[in-house]
Amino acid sequence: MKLSHEQVRHIAWLARLGLSEEDVEKFSLQLSNILENIEILRQVDTTGVPPATHSITLRNVFRKDDVVDSYSQTQILSNAPEQEENCFKVQPILE
């Protein structure tokens, strides 16, 4: 499986990851190499084998809906790069 530059750019777009042209070139080669090594999975007969999402089988984990203290607005905002009027500040979403 060889990843083209165009595919690398598309994946980066899906991941919202800015890449330099140099990165695109490098990832095209490296990811292709990794995927080649992953091709070995095709050799395994997995007909009828259920996929494992976890290594333990816990189902329907419930807890009591107890009221507990949470964090204050100040605490939660304390790491925000930008804030305004007790809110996280983001770029405009609507033009």
């Binding site: 992953i38 395994v44 997995t46 494992a52 999402t53 290594s55």
Partner: peptide
Amino acid sequence: AYYVKAQQVRTLIK
């Protein structure tokens, strides 16, 4: 082809 396959192999390894 990738994610589900890998999870099936995970079942077999386990």
